[in-house]
Design a protein around this nucleic acid. Structure first.
Length: 200
DNA sequence: TACCGG
DNA sequence: CCCGGT
């Protein structure tokens, strides 16, 4: 039951914004009474926190899966960016602003996730890529992982501007391409191009 | 579902 | 007036 509620909440919050979705809306869509809803969750704040937390956990699961199934570091970075693009395309920019503004505790969960999960993952993948000869040995993995994590999440801060979600997706693609070409060795670039061909 | 109160 | 909470 809890998961069902969280899944619906996640989708609705992302699409219409947290403030536009009322507790009545959620109860109706899940097909339960508000009483049941409040038995599972203390208040709306808790629901938002949990929904947000769940979204990040699902992302993290996907990342672990990518990490295990792909031994190619390039595929890993491409998939990470793809994941971010898919996530962005389903989120109304207004929802991000609302969470930052009205649910700072939920936003803190994301900040933590960014620092502890994504950043470490990127350091690992950059190191791995250097060893395999795809990335230039001169690069500092820690600095570039930081650069990349800021790049990826910059999409979420730009929401103040009038940028459309579609543009954000395009921007993600462009930044990934630029980042990769900055760290590739010859071997890396060739591997990237043949990997791109497969995707089309 | 109705209602209170912020 | 709206909506979270009872």
């Amino acid at each position: 039951m809890r998961e069902k509620i969280l899944d619906v909440s996640m989708e609705q919050f992302a699409r219409f914004g947290v403030r536009n979705i009322t507790m009545d809306d959620l109860a109706r869509q899940v097909g339960i009474s508000k009483k049941t809803l409040y038995q599972e969750f203390k208040d709306k704040k808790e629901l938002v926190m949990e929904a947000f937390h769940r979204m990040l956990s699902l992302d993290q699961e996907k990342m672990c899966f990518i990490m295990e199934s792909e031994d190619g570091v390039i595929e890993h970075l491409v998939n990470l960016s793809k994941m971010m693009r898919e996530r962005l395309s389903g989120i109304n920019p207004i929802a991000i602003l609302e969470v930052q503004k009205y649910f700072p505790e939920a936003w803190a969960i994301f900040e933590k996730h960014k620092e502890e999960v994504i950043l470490l993952d990127l350091v690992n993948v950059l190191e791995k890529g250097k060893k395999l000869g795809y990335f230039r040995k001169e690069i500092d993995s820690t600095i570039l992982a930081r650069l990349r994590v800021n790049q990826i999440t910059s999409a979420l801060e730009q929401t103040n501007s009038h940028t459309q979600t579609h543009d954000l997706v395009e921007v993600q693609m462009e930044m990934m391409d630029h980042f990769l070409h900055g760290i590739f060795t010859e071997k890396g670039r060739e591997a990237f191009y043949s990997q791109q061909k497969k995707q089309d």
